[in-house]
Nucleic acid binder design. Structure first.
Length: 955
RNA sequence: GCGGGGGUAGCCAAGCCUGGCCAAAGGCGCAGGACUUAGGAUCCUGUCCUCAGCGGUUCGAGGGUUCAAAUCCCUUCCCCCGCACCA
């Protein structure tokens, strides 16, 4: 295995010595690119390098096409990831210890510094920069590195929130959020940063329905308030001890668990007694909305942990209710135990309330029968319920029985009916999680009301409109996102932007109890890369970074002298920072994974539009999809991940870079496959060794030189137009496959002119530099060029020579045709005779081209033109057939594409290549024109020759 | 559901916006050959069917538009992703 690492280090040091990564303002056009900085959540895996690599490769391409490039990097450490990681390290968690060590963490750090959350962040800041980004040869401006937990970054963040407030975009209102009672707010998401259980839970909004029964109110929770017209009875669990709860002037009856949950969402609840479920039986209650008296009946399936522990029964549309009711009617023994008369239960009959396509009067009955469910405890009832809910929601229409809501679609009726009942005091709302969620600390997670939650008002219409308009002017890849981003912007509404609890981040400037949350502090930060350098090297201190300072530096507001006096930063330095901002901003490209499409990118865009002037709004976004693993093999949370440094050692950083750039479109997920990576790695080696061979050629010029030069010009212009669209993949196809193949062909055809080769290598190696910079440097050196290819410029594309390219295409086609004949016939020919088209056929082609130019080409017009030419006419039917076929072909193909066939001297070209063909195919090749008298033509093949397709005879 | 993406030859994957040298790039795999067996080698050739190359049938399925469709339109079947406080 080659020692990639030391080769890579060698060149990285050279780049660094030349300060290639340090971007300074100058006269060139600028290009600023970033990737969305990663969250500090532990070690990254090989998949993460995909997007980062795109950023470096695009930056390098821009460098070699005349741009002054700035590529800054940073990390996002806001949140509780580092806190929980440090806590697990401190607790000596076996899995975490193994994971850290396996990824290369020195064990002694686990015993000491990494027990502290901030040290965890600093540690990974080092890992990301040294082991990932530098290791991959990124030309990032390390001087500007920043992290959301740096004190200077916090100053910037507080300034940003002041600006948001000035723009009227900070609002306060109540909010229902998942929270752990001891740790505070937690994030419920599948990555389970905060959780030990329940990451897939959703927050559901229940409607609490109030059933008056005497002086008390039985409360049921439902997700389907639109079904109230179908209520026929009320279930309570006779074995549960319910609580009587005072809520204002009302007395509610709910399960103790529901009381606990409600108490986090409502003020002034008071438990004033208990009542056994069985004691509620025999009562009746008044159903909300329909004001009908329904019986309270016993049901063992009422779970006190779900909703309020009591259920209103709508058998028509709820499969559970349908089955339970059916069973209870069949077997009266359960009811009898509680003294419920058979007539009471028999009187409970479903009411049809919703009509929906594909279902009869009672959807619940239909689905239960369709699925063959026969028992009340069948687990498939859950699925049945989901199906009916889903279909009901989208297909259902309220029936006539539903009063003023009759005829309304369920989708609409649901909201309206809920609101009507809330307005009349018959309902309330309640939030709950769809499954049990447990915090890392072991406590249960509940939904808690927060009264004074701050939001950023991303729903602001003017802001949304201006952002949307701006997006049309941006370069957004892929085009699907360019089209869709407007819908996303519209959908993106108020966002809770601060939180309480165990959380690392910047204090909210208007109320320091709150910490700015993780999405909200990572939106405007690209502009901060233009300032971070001065804080990093101590030229400015965090205390000096006042509102006036940022106002001046970023917005150009105020007077330098005055601002200087206010914040204590030299006027000249202030002006330098201002000049940095003016020179580098706006950001040209923000590159991020597809997870950013619905949250980060809209927030990034809207913050820029809200705070900065239009000339500083971003110009580009590129979204990249993932590298995925078989059975989550590369996922960092599951263990078994391929550590990045190990992979780099095995395949070489450049092998991986080429793999990322070329394996698939950036806009598709790819499964990590070591064999693929290896094959890219080997391709680079192959190219390197081939370039070594080429460099030693000392021959003289041949007709192949013009061909090669033309091909290279074609390639350079393809590369340039591909990169206009940031299409790294097409660029890589050309640079690593097509150019390689062409040089192989050149070599095979006897090309050996050192001047041409050298000129060509200069272009080729430069073209490979963006994707595989280290190996490009090796090749550059091996080819004898001076300096660093990382500093070289890509030559402009020169002229193409269509005839030169056509001639070689012809030869390859002849070879391929001959091979096919050999394969099909199974003969081993000793002699190959080629016959080019006779002049009269070329004449027909010429006439066709003429007609086409005049726009008069058709089969009859060409035939007529041919028949008026005596030289052609003598060939009779063969001539009219040829004319017809030529006209057909030409009308089918793009105009002018057959011109080279007419203009090229096929006979001369093939004759010149006869020696080559003989050698390659191991036979004697000879070439005739079909016009030639006395040609050797025992198979009478010459008559088949047409322009572009010589006839072949093998013997 | 809402929003979005996708179905291409044994597999992976381009092409689709801007219809036409598209039987459809490239890679992998497979087969044959060369050269060699210090190697995860390299180099040629082939890899839908048919066949002395020029023909035929293909790009989830079915219709349509067009001189011409993998590409545009309609219908239909099947897969995947996001839906929020998680960057």
């Amino acid at each position: 295995m080659p020692d990639y690492e030391s080769i890579e280090r060698k060149w990285q040091v050279r780049w660094s010595d030349r300060k290639l990564n340090e971007s300074e303002r100058d006269e060139r056009p600028k290009f600023m690119i970033i990737f969305a900085y990663p969250g500090v959540t532990g070690y990254l895996h090989v998949g993460h390098m995909r997007g980062y690599t795109y950023a470096d490769a695009i930056g390098r391409y821009k460098r070699m096409t005349g741009y002054n490039v700035l590529f800054p990097v940073g990390t996002h450490a806001t949140g509780n990831g580092a806190i929980s990681l440090a806590a697990r390290i401190a607790a000596g968690d076996k899995d975490i210890m193994d994971y850290m060590v396996r990824n290369g963490c020195p064990p002694e750090k686990l015993e000491g510094e990494l027990r502290d959350p901030l040290n965890v962040v600093w540690f990974f800041n080092g890992v990301y920069q040294e082991e990932y980004w530098k290791r991959f040869g990124f030309l990032a401006d390390w001087r500007r590195f920043t992290c959301t937990l740096y004190p200077d970054y916090s100053k910037f963040m507080q300034w940003q929130f002041r600006k948001l407030n000035e723009a009227g975009l900070l609002i306060q209102k109540p909010y229902f959020a998942p929270a752990c009672l001891s740790c505070g707010p937690v994030a419920v998401d599948p990555s389970e940063t905060d959780l030990s259980k329940g990451g897939n839970a959703e927050t559901q909004e229940f409607t609490l329905l109030k059933f008056r029964s005497g002086d008390e109110i039985l409360v049921a929770a439902t997700l389907r308030p639109e079904t109230v017209y179908g209520q026929v009875c009320f279930w309570v669990n006779p074995e549960v001890e319910y609580l009587k709860v005072r809520n204002g002037g009302e007395t509610w009856i709910v399960s103790p668990q529901a009381y606990e949950k409600l108490s986090h969402q409502k003020d002034g609840l008071e438990s004033i007694g208990a009542v056994k479920g069985s004691d509620l039986l025999g009562r009746t209650c008044i159903a909300p909305m329909i004001h009908r008296e329904i019986p309270v009946l016993p049901a063992a399936f009422c779970d006190p942990d779900v909703g309020t522990g009591m259920v209103t029964s709508v058998p028509s549309d709820a499969p559970d209710d349908w089955m339970s009711l059916t069973k209870l009617k069949e077997d009266h023994s359960y009811m009898e135990r509680y003294g419920i008369a058979k007539e009471t239960i028999d009187a409970v009959v479903p009411i049809s309330i919703i009509s929906m396509k594909g279902y009869g009067d009672f959807p619940a009955q239909d689905i239960v029968e369709r699925m063959g469910i026969e028992e009340a405890d069948d687990p498939r009832l859950e699925e049945a319920k989901k199906q009916v809910y889903k279909d009901g929601y989208h297909l259902g229409v309220m029936k006539d029985i539903c009063g003023e809501f009759a005829g309304m679609r369920v989708e609409e009726a649901k909201e309206r009916m809920k609101q009507a009942m809330i307005d009349s005091g018959e309902a309330d709302v309640f939030f709950d999680l769809s499954e049990e969620v447990v915090c890392r600390c072991g406590c249960k997670v509940v939904i808690k009301r927060i009264d004074d939650q701050w939001f950023i008002d991303y729903g602001n219409e003017d802001l949304t409109q201006r952002t949307s308009d701006h997006c049309r002017t941006m370069t957004i890849n892929p085009v699907e996102y360019y089209n869709n981003v407007h819908a996303v912007l519209k959908w993106f509404r108020e966002r809770a932007c601060v939180r309480l609890g165990n959380w690392l981040g910047t204090k909210f400037p208007f109320d320091e109890r709150w910490i700015i949350e993780a999405i909200s502090d990572s939106t405007l930060y690209p502009v901060y890369y233009l300032i971070s350098m001065y804080a990093n090297d101590g030229r400015i201190e965090p205390e000096q970074m006042t509102e006036a300072f940022f106002d001046y530096a970023i917005l150009g507001k105020g007077d330098a002298e005055k601002v200087s006096g206010e914040c204590g930063i030299d006027t000249s330095l202030l002006n330098e920072i201002r000049a940095e901002v003016l020179y580098w901003y706006p950001l040209d490209m923000n590159l991020g994974g597809k997870e950013h499409m619905t949250v980060h990118f809209p927030a990034f865009l809207k913050n820029h539009v809200a705070i900065l002037p239009p000339e500083m709004w971003p110009k580009g976004i590129t979204v990249n999809w993932y590298i995925t693993g078989k059975k989550s093999k590369i996922s960092k949370s599951k263990g078994g991940a391929q550590p990045i440094p190990g992979a780099a050692k095995k395949f070489g950083a450049d092998g991986m870079r080429l793999y990322y750039a070329h394996i698939a479109s950036p806009f598709a997920d790819v499964e990590w496959d070591e064999d693929n990576v290896m094959s890219y790695s080997q391709r680079i080696d192959r190219i390197a060794s081939f370039i070594g061979d080429l460099s030693s050629y000392r021959g003289s010029a041949t007709e192949m030189d013009a061909w090669l030069v033309s091909r290279m010009n074609t390639h350079v212009s393809t590369i340039r137009s591909a990169m206009e669209r940031y299409d790294l993949r097409q660029m890589a196809t050309v640079a690593y496959f097509e150019i390689f193949n062409d040089l192989k062909w050149y070599q095979r055809r006897g090309g050996e002119n050192p001047e041409t080769i050298s000129e060509c290598l200069r272009t080729w190696i430069t073209a490979m530099m963006p994707v595989t910079p280290h190996m490009a440097e090796e090749m550059w050196e091996a080819a004898g060029f001076d300096g660093l290819v990382s500093e070289a410029q890509l030559p402009e594309a020169g002229e193409r020579s269509v005839p030169a390219e056509y001639g070689e295409d012809l030869i390859r086609e002849v070879m391929s045709d001959a091979q096919q004949i050999i394969k099909v016939t199974g003969i081993e020919p000793k002699r190959m005779v080629l016959y080019t088209a006779p002049s009269w056929k070329i004449g027909i082609l010429g006439k066709a081209l003429e007609l086409q130019e005049k726009g008069e080409l058709s089969i009859p017009s060409l035939t007529k033109a041919c028949m008026s030419d005596p030289d052609i006419k003598v060939h009779g039917k063969a001539a009219s057939d040829m004319a017809r076929k030529t006209a057909e072909d030409m009308m089918r193909l793009p105009a002018g594409s057959m011109r080279p066939m007419f203009e090229s001297d096929e006979r001369a070209h093939l004759a010149a290549a006869a020696g080559f063909l003989s050698k390659e195919m191991g036979l004697e090749a000879e070439v005739y024109s079909s016009d030639e008298e006395g040609r050797y033509d025992p198979g009478d093949k010459a008559r088949m020759a047409v322009p572009g397709r010589p006839a072949i005879y093998l013997e």
